[in-house]
Amino acid sequence: MSAVPFALLDEQSKREIRRAILKGIAIPGYQVPFASRELPIARGWGTGGLQVTLALIGKNDVLKVIDQGSDDSVNAVNIKKLVTKTTGVQTTTRTQDATLVQSRHRIPEVPLRADQVLVLQVPEPEPLRDIERSEFKTKRYHAEKEYSGAYLMLFEQIMRYNQTSQGADYPVLVNGRYVMNPSPIPRFDNPKIHQSDALILFGAGREKKIYAVPPYTNVESLAFEDYPFVVEQFEGKVCRETGLSDVFLDELTDEVTGETYYVCNDTSYMQEILQQKVAAK
């Protein structure tokens, strides 16, 4: 019956999303409310990131979509399929070849360049939500730069466990002004946001917020002088396939021997290293 527009959404909607993105870039780390559209993919399944991607994508873009480090995971496949079906753009798994990378819960191991844009999917944009459930109040805290609650939360964790217990989605201070959830990337990826060459955009579809970290912005993970920020430690563990140790690892169990082994979580990076090894032989 009706033909679906390029990149699915009607033009006014896309323009409105781009306006929110521009505002986000102008105020790094500030959550810009936007009237999130319903998509053919469920809320909570990356619709914030997807709306950012759909609003930005042009015919010459090359898209890469990753979910939890994998290009082939259900969510990544589904999102890629929807975007290509409605735009006809090319996709890639090689981080270096993409102009637009949409990701859930990981920043690729290959460093991003200034001519690339990273879009992260955000389930919970509000870093203060665990401390204060009211949106009305958290908005005010941000306006007043009242972040003692965010530090107090980490302080309580340290009192209890002698270290922080915040796993992924470890809060950061952007440009010395706004405390921001970096989306549930592991702490391992937090340093990659600091002074990034690439523009990083964050989309929260269900919570209807868009925010941004422009290139070359200071991004600091919250910490204390005597309790510095630490990333996940994979001490003594290496990727079974590539031998890499400076990457985020997945923990797997060998079905035959029952022993635990590790592989590189970023699957496209792992493949590339493996191909290089084969070529070298």
Binding site: A42, R43, G44, W45, T47, D67, Q68, G69, S73, V74, N75, H105, R106, P123, Q163, T164, S165, G167, A168, D169, P184, I185, P186, R187, F188, R206, E232, Q233, F234, F248, L249, D250, E251, N265
Partner: peptide
């Protein structure tokens, strides 16, 4: 329904981060 159903998606990176901790 979207957010409830998203719990069915893989969460192994976030889970690994929690596990390590």
């Amino acid at each position: 329904t979207g957010f409830i159903s998203h719990l069915k998606m893989p969460h192994y990176v976030t889970f690994q981060a929690k596990l390590e901790q």
